[in-house]
Design a protein around this nucleic acid. Structure first.
Lengths: 247, 247
DNA sequence: CCGTCTTAGTTGTGATCACATTGCAGTCAC
DNA sequence: GTGACTGCAATGTGATCACAACTAAGACGG
């Protein structure tokens, strides 16, 4: 592995340790889409630290392409505010501020329950709970193991299994954008305070799906988000995490 | 004007008739940003028809640059779903569907009242109503003149004068993204049914700002959005507009 | 030992090129 | 007249190049 290029390579964008490489899976996708997916995954899992500088050539080397597809991928992610391009053009994962964080959670609390409720009619009352329960089991397993990265990936999978069922090409992009933004930050928080005190409302959500109760589903999601917020608040008063991230 | 290139030039992206060209205004911005702004403005005003194909080289010629900055601008807009890139790579303004439209209004009804309420504490109780009233007067004037394009620009200005006061770099991008998506479609609707039957709740919103009443402000915005929805519904049952747009 | 200036390297940006794919118009057979 | 076919033009994509702005390390003088 010759990622020795000292030129802005993060080493955090490549396929994760247990990402399950499938080289032939979607070989028909262009290079840019592959780059975009790599970056999105890294951001949502929080594998890239906020404030960490990235460079076009560094990422290009790391991903084995020319800077060109990286430029477009970066530009797309920057449009979603998942990456920050400063005035001088330098690229970095945005730092979190207290105000921004509060607003992200507020936006999540508005958008995600709505998406879940929108999804409910499209969910099979028998099959969907089974699938969701399986995903939630993986979340719980990650929590038991204290594996932050696995937790974030599985938590994402659980939530989006729900939201994707809404088949909404309005709500889904909005929600994805928000997750991209708070992923790196959450990773830092979890990395510091651990995932031990984490409580989610996934089981209530699954029960609501099984019951076909839209109101209860929305409330479960709302509580799940509020819970995350409470955890952060706790971590903050404990002084264990600051919003700026490292450096 | 030699836009005679038959190569995908829309002729709708350049500076509008009363855009007030200021060549030296922000000469320090890069070419890409200029292209992005031109496209955003054209989309929000609805100057580009849904389904209309665009090409990199066509836009580049029209804007007097190479295809390169256009590529990045397009990629950014596509990330916000303001433009649609089909499987074969062709670029076009997304067509509207009934489901999508309903969801956009639902998202607006969730996000915009929240942004307005967030903005309230930052608004001067004396100065802000004055500025908002001035903007709303321009909206009313456009409605009297039946000038659809001016209406859309001024309506946008009114709403975003409010939302921008929230200074939220979370809500603002989300809301902008949504406006970019329904702009072209609304333009078609207004172009067909006219702006005569248009009723807004801007005055109630201004009054709420003057009174410092957050709840009333949120409700005014909510009603304003619902009003737009009602108009569309009307236009639809009248059969005057379809969701696909022309061609 | 510290501050200032210089310089070499790195960065993003815009332009241009080569190429595979796709869409389309013109043609030809029937 | 209508169909399939063929060839060309146009499209997005990825790579490469030239360049200006900037960074940071090194040289130099105090």
């Amino acid at each position: 592995m010759k990622t020795g290029a000292k030129t802005g390579a993060t080493g955090a964008v490549g396929a994760g340790p247990d990402a399950g490489e499938r080289p032939e899976a979607h070989a028909r996708t262009g290079v840019r889409d592959r780059v975009t997916e790599a970056l999105r995954a890294a951001l949502i899992i929080g594998r890239i630290q906020p404030g960490r500088p990235m460079t076009l050539r560094g990422l290009a080397d790391e991903l084995g392409t020319s800077p060109m597809p990286v430029r477009e991928a970066i530009r797309g992610l920057a449009a979603e505010r998942a990456l920050d391009i400063s005035d001088n053009g330098r690229i970095q994962v945005p730092r979190m501020t207290e105000q921004r964080f509060a607003e992200i959670l507020k936006a999540r609390a508005l958008l995600e329950p709505a998406a879940a409720m929108l999804a409910l009619p499209n969910l099979d009352r028998k099959d969907a709970p089974r699938r969701l329960r399986a995903l939630d089991d993986q979340v719980d397993a990650s929590l038991r193991d204290g594996n932050v990265e696995a937790y974030m990936r599985h938590n994402h999978a659980f939530h989006f299994a729900l939201y994707e069922a809404s088949r909404s090409d309005v709500f889904l992009p909005l929600i994805e954008s928000v997750w991209l933004r708070f992923g790196p930050f959450m990773r830092i928080v979890y990395g510091r305070v651990g995932t031990a005190g984490l409580v989610d409302h996934h089981k209530a959500a699954v029960a609501a799906v099984a019951a076909g109760d839209a109101e209860a589903l929305g409330e479960a999601i709302r509580l799940d988000i509020a819970e995350g917020m409470a955890l952060i608040r706790e971590a903050l008063v404990a002084g264990a995490a600051d919003f700026a991230g490292p450096r």
